[in-house]
């Protein structure tokens, strides 16, 4: 779905992305983690052609992003930005979702059908003014308008920042659901709990260089690697790492409960 071949990107003489190569297959759910200024947002923008690589090639859905217009790539790609207000441009929730669909398709009946379905799925009031909604609701609206287009590739730039736990879980469930239907997801996040719960693969970026790309279970247990990207493992993993033997496979709270019970059972 996405292939980076030795991609470098610089701006104003500063190298932001340095010789990055990786491949994401259809249906992957990958988290992109790294310290602030590591180049995560730039890498995401390279994925849908908003930025063109200075060196190397980015191939998305069979298109070389340097040769195709971003609006063409947007027909099968959804991008959720950190700030939802930049994406909202209509005065009614219904119009906002409809506008998103109009950008990628022409069939009026299909647009109306998808619009109504999305409103129902996301429990949104179609007549509401988006700018009178809370930040979480606006983030949900933007995600709804993206998911209405049924993108094959979903790029998410910190989708849960500033949201409460309930809103956060709601948004992540929606993302997880479209991933289960076959969409590829690349999610930038600083929230290691979210990364651990939802992403199957993790890429670690530091100073524009890809330090690691692999299974979430393996990478979040690699403390030195995470430390080099100014990150800490999720608390449950940190606890498992400190407890040592017998806790190697602990990733979730349930795993920890089972491991503790097993240890206690063994002791008794």
């Amino acid at each position: 779905m996405i292939r980076f071949d030795n991609v470098s990107y610089s701006t104003n003489g500063i190298k932001i992305i340095n010789d990055v190569s990786f491949e994401l297959k259809k249906g992957d759910f990958t988290a992109l983690i790294g310290a602030n200024g590591a180049g995560k947002s730039t890498l995401a923008r390279l994925c849908n052609g908003l930025l063109k690589p200075c060196r190397g090639a980015v191939n998305v859905g069979g298109f070389d992003t340097a040769l195709v217009r971003t609006s063409r790539i947007a027909k099968f790609t959804g991008f959720l930005f950190q700030n939802p207000d930049r994406q909202i441009c209509k005065n009614r929730v219904r119009d906002e979702i409809r506008f998103s669909l109009e950008c990628v398709m022409e069939d009026r009946a299909e647009i109306e059908m998808r619009c109504e379905r999305t409103l129902k799925e996301f429990s949104l009031d179609g007549e509401r003014d988006p700018f009178s909604m809370s930040r979480g609701e606006r983030q949900r609206l933007v995600l709804a308008s993206i998911l209405a287009t049924e993108p094959e590739l979903l790029l998410l730039d910190e989708p849960t920042t500033g949201l409460d736990y309930r809103e956060c879980m709601h948004i992540m469930e929606c993302i997880s659901s479209i991933n289960r239907k076959g969409a590829t997801v690349l999610m930038i996040s600083h929230d290691m709990e979210i990364v651990q719960d939802f992403a199957r693969e993790v890429m670690v970026l530091n100073d524009g260089e890809l330090l690691a790309h692999g299974s979430t279970k393996v990478i979040i247990r690699n403390e030195p690697l995470l430390a080099s990207a100014s990150l800490l493992p999720p608390q449950i993993t940190e606890l498992a790492l400190r407890l040592g033997e017998g806790y190697e496979n602990v990733v979730t709270v349930d795993d920890m409960v089972s491991a503790v019970k097993k240890k206690r059972g063994g002791a008794e």
Binding site: L50, R69, S71, A74, N83, R86, S100, C103, V104
Partner: peptide, 16 residues
């Protein structure tokens, strides 16, 4: 510029 970028990403043909 940010708004134009966000709208281009959703398929509005600003790159015409």
């Amino acid at each position: 510029a940010g708004i134009i970028e966000a709208q281009t990403a959703r398929g509005v043909a600003f790159d015409t």
